[in-house]
Amino acid sequence: MAKERTSKKKESQARQIWKRFRKNKIAMAALIVLGIIILAACSADLFWDYQKDACNIHVPQRLQKPSAEHWLGTDELGRDMLCRIVYGARASLTVGLAATTFALIIGGILGSISGYYGGKLDNVIMRCTDVLLAIPGLLLAIAIMSAFKPNVFYISLALGISYISKFTRIVRSAVLTVREQEYIEAAKAIGAKDHVIILKHLLMNCMAPIFVQYALAIGSRILSVSTLSYIGMGIQSPTPDWGNMLSGARAYIRGNSYLVLGPGIALLLTISAFNLIGDGLRDAMDPRLKK
């Protein structure tokens, strides 16, 4: 009984979450790794010339092993691997973020409407997401991509659409739990309009599960970009992407395995980082784990 009393410290919830997140060593390591990857992707232009180093072919330098000049060696067309991996991060991260954000916005709107109003509207929205869920996500993305030009915009769109139903469900269930809280009724009682209640009271209080899913979804979207690119439906050569790099390196896997290791490890690190951050966030936001 007495142990439930909260200590009297002036702190916002966000700060408390950050404090608990910081104590989680693995999640912090993941955050640092991700930070380095993002920093590298942003500052790539300081070290290389995109067109010259990442795209143009330098046949004389093809398939060089890692050396002082080319830290990760060069690929079958003589391009520096490190340079291409760093530029590849740009594509993966951009698409990953854009696709997830797109899915979050559409899914968030649908989910909160569905959860808040309930009834027939809820039924219609949920049946539509059921239909979407029944189609394997990657298959849907491939189908969409076969109709459009494979550029960053359409890839994001295709990968986003296949994730909308997941976010709709997550947001809806989060909204359903918060909707029953008396402060929602209190907001109605003081005469707040529906959109104020949804945006200010409902969604802001379901941020925890949504954030966690957001982080996890980015990881999953990045993997999907690479898959699409690997099978040639995503980002096209010569634009570097981890997926199409892996695809190109396939033929040389015996003699020049470093060609696979580079983009493979980059992919592994990025996706693990997002997943671990997601897990860390979940732990930090779950008040039951508060000691």
């Binding site: 919830q13 008396e182 209190a186 209080n205």
Partner: peptide, 13 residues
């Protein structure tokens, strides 16, 4: 209206 539950009737944020 004044609510019963002083815990759930206030927006925690």
């Amino acid at each position: 209206i004044i609510f019963q539950d002083p815990f759930s009737s206030l927006d925690p944020r």
